[in-house]
Structures are given as structure tokens and as C-alpha cells.
Design a protein around this nucleic acid. Structure first.
Lengths: 354, 354
DNA sequence: CTGAAAGCGCTTACAG
DNA sequence: CTGAAAGCGCTTACAG
């Protein structure tokens, strides 16, 4: 088909076209071709124009491998996901984040090199290999843990690295500024402002830095505002969220509002409440830490913290690109806000049956 | 920290260790080192052992760039996504598929090279660049369209390619066998078996091959079984799905069951039905083409076609790996099944108020 | 401004 | 079995 459209096309089989081919055709040396195509001084304008013409005519493309061998950037950013495939498939955060990263990267001609690993140690090994191979110009690290081996390893390699999802106490490593504590403050302001003073928080995996930051802010707020607050340790598993919700609902003095650490957990929690005959928000308000279309279309619609994972990805990508370019990183803080929907309302303690 | 743990470690700055370093240390030529580390004949066992020891001691790793220059495989598979970041972030299919691909690839030491593109033409350009650069050993193409430019371009390059999401009429290109028609048959069997004979189908973008395959099977079934069937063209947009649902619900003789082409569309549709005061499944049954945790925890839970995007990704990855290895591709068909949940039930035409 | 050459790190014939 | 050399496709000093 392509051939039919352009019948004069030469039989393009095997044999890649190299700068040597261009040099021969243009009657110069390959060194001159290199200077010409790279826009470096050293060839006359006339020669340069001729060389460029031939290059275009021959449909030449630089050999990425050869350029990498010479130390050129690989134009790729690496990201390894150390979670089971099932979790990555369920949590909307990952696809949003990756989509955001991609949209910025692709605009600059960069690709994302993606790999999955069993655990943080395996992830660190992949990082090492990628860096030594020059396969990536920079690395994105997701969700730092307390005493994260990946951070320790990367800190020693001085390679562009951006950590996403929590602060890191190393000078050599930058992190996308996500203010988890501040976001939790917004959530608590929202609920407390509605009149809630018995609030529960069903958390994700507490080994993650970002989760512990949220928990700290949660406790802090409760202490400061005289709110009864209870965190229940979870692990992002919906079954576990359901169990925690049932336990909370069955308590002598149940909370009037529950904050869930992910969309999937929030939905699971709401479904549990419904099956227990509890109404949202009349009996208990629900808030999801992560927004999605599902939150918008559920019945009732779900109040959510919009971290906007897509723009978080965009920001992370922009920062790693700045780091790679050797520019100072302009940390644009990722804005989070509470999107107020139907699942949160003032508690109706004293009201009779609707 | 790493240094503290291993104080004898040499100052590992700059300068990568090459086979020349190994050769010098082991008292052989670099050619011998190459043979030794690659397990090729040409060196005595004693020499080989000595060389391997030195390589290990020096923590040598082959230069990926140099090997690629010599024509070695890149150990990466390419996938470009030609959809807006927002869509990719919302549709659970993508993250599941990518997670599945990854889990198989990572097990074999392969990475996924990912990029986003504006449209199919831009995607084809990225494919060309990747192939010419030797950056990927194989390419995965998602959701072929009618007269897809990507397929036309790839067909001419004889490079390992696997198409996912629809059949393709080219001998040189293999596709993961997803039986869209058969799956639609399962859905219709399910609904018809429950007693529905007025069924609507709100579709995704009809320019996609897999959607048109589903539509054909839908029409076919309706004709064969005397079912009143109506497809409404959509484009995966939840707002559009809501509108289509409202139109269907407001019809003089509304359907008793609606099939939606994606999870997001199904949820949007259900929310519309609820806001119109229609009960699911009492007034209308709803079925989603794509399963997810959300389908399991919604109220009512949603009957869904489980294509199992994760295993679809695994299968696609396994097939591209076989193609790369030059092995015959064993097409394991991807099994789809209808997971019956609360959102579908027998139509209650004649029944009075509950 | 241009030419000739060395080198990036590896692999692979080709002689000894 | 081993050594010496050419070559993959490019870049970059270094002479003219």
C-alpha cells in the first residue's frame, strides 16, 4: 500500500543508512556529516545544506545505540512498579499517574520505560541496571517507604531521580511536593466544618511514607480540635476495608464520618454500610482519598480528595525532565482539594426517621 | 550507607568497567573475555573460570548500547497509547492490560517501552523510530481500527508484532485471539436466557475493530432470536452514555436490558437510571463489558463480561515473546465469561409495585 | 572550514 | 585453544 502510493520508493530491505552513506553521496567525510546533522559549527553553510538534503533524501535516522555508546541521553525515563499486577490493575491511581507522566514525556519525545518488580530490593536492582546501561536518563520512584532501600541505593548514584508520594530526608534526592498532611487538613476541615466530631480513618498500608504522613496529620487535627478520631490500619484491600467498616458501624458509639485511603476502599465501605442498612450520608458520611469518574456517578456521589493523579504525573515528569536538563527544579506544588458531593453532609444525630 | 556496610569497596566513581579491564586483570584479550562471558566455545574451562571470577569481582555489566550496536536484542517491547491521558486514566482496561503485559515481561527480564501519541499516524511514526533504533524487539498494537495506518506500516517492516483487540486481515501480523463476537453471544445468551427480548447496546467508538465485531454479533443474535435490539453509538464518554441511557429510558417502549461497552459507561448509565427513578434490575437490567472491583462493590453489584484484561495482557506479552524468540505462536484464546451479579435479572413486565 | 583518525564497548571472523 | 584486528555507527579532538 505504501509502495503503491510512492512507486519510486527504493527497495528498502535490511541495511540501515548510516552517516557513511550520506558522506559518500555528498562527497564529504562522515565527520562532516556528524557536524552538519547536529548543527555544530565546522562546516560551511553550503556543505551543511547539501548534507542535510542527502540525509533527508536517504531517510537517514541516527542510530540510537551508537549515540548512546557515545554518551548521549537515552531519552527515556524509568519507572518500576513494585506491586502485584492485580493491585496495579485495580487502583485507578496508577493508570492516572502513568497517563500524566506519559503525556508530558511524549510531548518532549521521551518514552517511559516500565517494569514490574517483586519488592523494593528487586526494584533497586532494576534501577541500577538501567542506569549502568544508560537506558534511562532519569528515574521516578513511587511511594517511598520508611527506610526505603531504593532511596538509599539511588542516593549513592547521583542520577536524576524524583520521588513521588512522600518526602524523603536526603538532600541529593528531590521529591514532588505532595502535601499529604495539608490535604488531610483539608479533609478534616471539611468534615469538622460540617459538624462531625467522631471521625474514623481507614488507612492504606502504613509502611508507606505518604500514609504515615496522612495519619500524623489526622491525629494532630483530632487533638487540636477535640475531635474523637480513630484510624484503622488497612492495606488497600477492599475486603479489609469492608471488615473495618463493619467493625466501625457496629461500635457502641460509631463514627459519623469515615475517610478511606483509596477509591476502591471507599466504594467497598459504602457498599458495606448499605448492606448494614445504614444510609450515606444521613447516618454516616464517607470521603474517598482519590477521585474518579466512579465517585461522580455512584449513588450517592462520593465526596473525594482530588489529588489529581494525572497532574501529579505531569508534574513528576516535568521535574525529572528539568533535572535531566540540568535545570533547577521548579517545584510546583500539586494542589489537592476536596470535591464536595453527596456522600458527606452534616451529621443528623438528633433527627428522627426521615 | 552502602559504603559503610562494605568499607573495602573501591571508590566507584565515573569510569565504567569494560571487558578491556577484565582482560587486563585476567591476562587475556578482550576477545577471550567476550567468548567467556557469553558462554561461547573458544576458551579453555580454566581461562573461562578465571575470567568469570574477575568479571564478578569487578562487578562488570555488559554495555547495553554496545550490544545493541552489535545487533543484540534490546529486551524491550513497545506499546504506544493513542488516546487522551484522561481516557487512559479513567478506563480501567488500560491499567489492567499494562499490568498483565508487565507481569509476563518482567518475569523474562523484558521492559515495556511506553509512549503516548496524538493519533494513529503519530503512533505509526513512533513504531518506525523504535524499530529502526533497535529500541524494541517487538511491538504491541492495541485496538486496531478499520483501515488502520499502523497495521499497514507495520506489515511492511516484518518486525514482531502482536495486535490486541480485534482480528486483522494480514497474514504477516498475528493477533491475540479475542473472540468479541463470541463474547457478545455469551452476553446475549445470558440476557435472553433471563427472558429479555428488548435489549439495547450502548457502544464505544465504532471506528474500532473490536466494537464493530461486537455490534455485528449483537445484530446477528437479535435477528436469529427474534429479539428487539437497538445499538446506540457512543464513544466511551460517560456523559454520552448518560444521555443515551436517558433517551432509551424515555422511549415509548424502553428496553428491559442495556449492555454498556465499558465499566465507566455502565456506571454512568446506572446512575442515570437511578436518577430517573428506575430500579436496577427490577425495571431494567444492566450489563457492563468489562469487570472491575467497582462492579463488585456497587449497589446493586454489576453483572459484567470478564475479559480479564490482566490475562489478556499476559497472553499478548507471551505471544510477542514467542514471536521474538522465533518460536511458533501458540494462540491461547483469551476466555471471557459473564459474571452474573445483581444488576441483571428476569424482566418483571407484568408485576405490580414491589 | 575540512580531512583523517581515534575511540565508545562489544562481537566476530581470521590467523596462528 | 588463543591473539590480533576489523567493524557496528557515531562523535570529537587534532592536524591541515
Amino acid at each position: 500500500m505504501a509502495d503503491a502510493a510512492n512507486p519510486a520508493e527504493p527497495p528498502r530491505k535490511r541495511k540501515r543508512v548510516t552517516i557513511a552513506d550520506i558522506a559518500e553521496r555528498a562527497g564529504v567525510t562522515s565527520g562532516a556529516v556528524s557536524l552538519a546533522v547536529n548543527g555544530k559549527p565546522g562546516v560551511s553553510d553550503a556543505t551543511r545544506a547539501r548534507i542535510l538534503d542527502v540525509a533527508r533524501e536517504l531517510r537517514w535516522r541516527p542510530s540510537h545505540a551508537a549515540q548512546t555508546l557515545m554518551g548521549k541521553n537515552s531519552e527515556a525515563v524509568g519507572l518500576v512498579l513494585a506491586r502485584p499486577a492485580e493491585v496495579i490493575g485495580e487502583e485507578i491511581f496508577f493508570s492516572k499517574f502513568i497517563a500524566g507522566v506519559q503525556s508530558t514525556l511524549s510531548g518532549r519525545g521521551y518514552s517511559l520505560l516500565l517494569q514490574m518488580a517483586e519488592d523494593a530490593a528487586a526494584e533497586a536492582a532494576i534501577h541500577q541496571a538501567w542506569i549502568l546501561d544508560g537506558r534511562v536518563d532519569g528515574i521516578l520512584v513511587l511511594d517511598p517507604r520508611i527506610d526505603d532501600p531504593r532511596i538509599a541505593a539511588l542516593a549513592g548514584m547521583d542520577h536524576p531521580t524524583i520521588v513521588v508520594g512522600g518526602q524523603v530526608d536526603r538532600d541529593s534526592i528531590r521529591s514532588v511536593h505532595v502535601d499529604n498532611g495539608g490535604a488531610m487538613g483539608l479533609i478534616m476541615d471539611h468534615l469538622h466544618g460540617l459538624g462531625h466530631d467522631r471521625i474514623a480513618y481507614v488507612t492504606g498500608d502504613q509502611a508507606f511514607r505518604h500514609i504515615s504522613e496522612r495519619m500524623d496529620a489526622f491525629s494532630q487535627f483530632c487533638v487540636d480540635h477535640g475531635v474523637w478520631g480513630q484510624s484503622l490500619a488497612g492495606n488497600f484491600d477492599p475486603a479489609q476495608a469492608r471488615e473495618a467498616t463493619a467493625r466501625l458501624a457496629g461500635a457502641p458509639r460509631p463514627p459519623t464520618a469515615i475517610v478511606f485511603d483509596s477509591e476502591v476502599m471507599a466504594i467497598a465501605g459504602m457498599s458495606t454500610l448499605a448492606s448494614l442498612g445504614l444510609r450515606v450520608p444521613a447516618d454516616v458520611s464517607v470521603l474517598s482519598w482519590e477521585d474518579s469518574t466512579t465517585c461522580q456517578v455512584l449513588h450517592p456521589t462520593v465526596t473525594a480528595l482530588s489529588r489529581d493523579a494525572v497532574s501529579l504525573g505531569r508534574t513528576a515528569a516535568a521535574e525529572i525532565l528539568q533535572l535531566i536538563a540540568g535545570q533547577p527544579v521548579q517545584q510546583e506544588p500539586v494542589v489537592a482539594r476536596v470535591i464536595h458531593r453527596e456522600s458527606t453532609a452534616a451529621p443528623d444525630r438528633d433527627r428522627g426517621p426521615a
